[in-house]
Amino acid sequence: MIIEIIIGIIILIILVGIVVLYNSLVQLRNRVKNAWSQIDVQLKRRTDLIPNLVETVKGYAKHEKTTFEEVTAARSNLMNAKTVAENQVANNQLTGALKTLFAVAENYPELKANENFKDLQAQLSQTEDKIAYSRQFYNDTVLMYNNKCQMFPSNILASAFNFKEAEFFEVAESETATPKVEF
């Protein structure tokens, strides 16, 4: 009788452990999805600001057609990206195109003084900061989730219930290169 009670308690402890581990995996997976949606929200905000910015610059720099086309194409690619990897590539393209757009704006002092342009530029800068924070939060969440998927004993449950590791949002190599400063 006592052996049966002990075996029952051991089985109950194992079942509770499995439930706790499973629920923690689900919770972390959902945090990863939530963190990704936060990045998505900020990327959407940025893509919404870009047409206004482009139109403002167009009024001053009518001959910069290729720059506007690059920004528009990069924005479209970002809006159509589905996976983390596609989003990374499209985001890097858009960042490069925006750098070119702001370089064009530098050639037009009256544009730089335009209140609408300055406001759009400030909003875009704030959004870029939010994107950077959201990326960091996402990657931290992915790290916790992936650790849980890889560490014993939760890795057994992760494998059994088909929990897949999440992708990190990585910066392009061109963005991590040390800039060359010359005086």
Rank of each mutant, 00 (worst) to 15 (best):
M1G: 11
E4I: 14
I5T: 15
G8P: 08
I10W: 15
I13Y: 14
L15M: 13
G17S: 05
I18N: 05
I18C: 00
N23C: 05
V26R: 13
Q27T: 15
L28P: 01
R29L: 02
V32R: 04
V32Y: 05
A35K: 07
W36H: 02
S37D: 07
D40N: 08
V41W: 09
L49Y: 04
L49F: 05
E55R: 06
E64D: 10
K65Y: 13
T67H: 06
A74M: 07
S76E: 10
N77T: 10
L78K: 07
N80S: 13
K82I: 11
A85L: 10
N87K: 02
Q88Y: 02
N92K: 08
A97I: 03
K99H: 15
A105W: 04
A113V: 08
N116K: 01
F117Y: 09
E128N: 13
D129P: 04
Q136V: 13
Y138T: 02
N139G: 11
N147E: 11
N147M: 11
Q150K: 14
F152I: 06
S154Q: 04
N155A: 02
L157N: 07
L157C: 03
S159H: 11
F161R: 08
N162W: 10
A166M: 00
A166D: 01
E167H: 02
V171S: 15
V171M: 11
A172H: 04
E175K: 14
T176W: 00
T176C: 13
A177Q: 15
V181Y: 05
